[in-house]
């Protein structure tokens, strides 16, 4: 009877059911993270290994992207400022844009693509090849070993990567400004620090922590719940990236509202 009524449901209702079930499962997954993260065993070795994988191994890509963002953004901003004869404001404008928004956002999006997909694929492949089951039957908590360690690592590493991206992007910007406006390194950075407030840096770091947590937990959730063999692994990796990016934009929007409310209170 209930199976029949399930089949007779309109497509939209079925999709809504699926969405709400997914949401409930995701909520339970996050709740499990917060209930397990405080208690031993603490997987320090695995967390350090993941920090290395996530942080150090992302440096080349982050460096290149941050540097190019700094140069391109400076170059694109110059014509508008020069119309008002305000090119001397370039360091201030660029630093505010990079530290408040572009640094965290660019870093998080790159990490979602590189780290999120890799976490989704790795855990997904462990799931479909029964490696997670093998841990469970050996009385090892796979959630703690795989999910908690990776999520902590992304939460810790993304803010560090954001600071690094900010720095590299500012260097890129300086090179561009130096070539065109003949501004020295010290003058450039004096203007940068004059323009940037404590709230900018602090809010950027807090936001990055949230982005890092999102990338880690989404990658783990999608991987941990993957099925249907290798096809499922691919889907898990893809879904990790798409979902992480979507959530990062939503979080960015929320963070902007909160920080503006504090700034102009």
């Amino acid at each position: 009877m209930s199976e029949k009524s399930e089949n007779n449901k309109p497509v939209l209702t079925k999709k809504l059911d699926k969405f709400l079930t997914g949401l409930a499962n995701a909520f339970r997954f996050v709740k499990r993270f917060f209930s397990e993260v405080w208690f031993p065993p603490y997987e320090f070795k695995e967390i350090l290994r993941q920090c290395y994988e996530i942080g150090y191994r992302s440096l080349p890509l982050i460096s290149l992207t941050g540097f190019i963002v700094g140069i391109v953004f400076t170059n694109q901003s110059r014509p508008s400022l020069s119309e008002f004869g305000a090119t001397s404001w370039l360091p201030a404008l660029i630093s505010i844009a990079i530290i408040r928004a572009m640094g965290p956002l660019v870093t998080a999006l790159i990490a979602a693509g590189k780290v999120g997909s890799s976490i989704g694929a790795e855990i997904g492949s462990m799931k479909v090849t029964e490696q997670i089951d093998a841990m469970e039957v050996s009385a090892i908590n796979p959630f703690k070993y795989l999910v908690v360690s990776r999520t902590i690592a992304t939460t810790l590493m993304i803010p560090i990567l954001v600071l690094y991206t900010d720095f590299v992007a500012l260097i890129g910007s300086f090179i561009n400004v130096n070539q065109n406006e003949l501004v020295s390194l010290s003058t450039f950075f004096v203007q940068v620090f004059e323009a940037v407030s404590f709230l900018d840096v602090f809010s950027s770091l807090i936001k990055s922590l949230v982005f890092g947590f999102t990338i880690g937990i989404v990658g783990c959730y999608k991987g941990y719940n993957s099925s249907n063999g290798t096809e499922g692994v691919g889907k898990a990796a893809n879904a990790s990236v798409v979902m992480s990016m979507f959530l990062i934009f939503i979080e960015e929007l929320l963070a902007l509202q909160i920080v503006n409310a504090i700034r102009y209170a």
Binding site: M126, T129, E130, Q131, D133, A134, E136, V137, S138, A139
Partner: peptide, 17 residues
């Protein structure tokens, strides 16, 4: 505790890659 007394050899070996 009980699982420690049971060995489970998986079909695809399930070695940690």
């Amino acid at each position: 505790k009980l699982r420690l007394k049971i060995g489970f050899a998986f079909q695809a070996s399930a070695l940690y890659d």
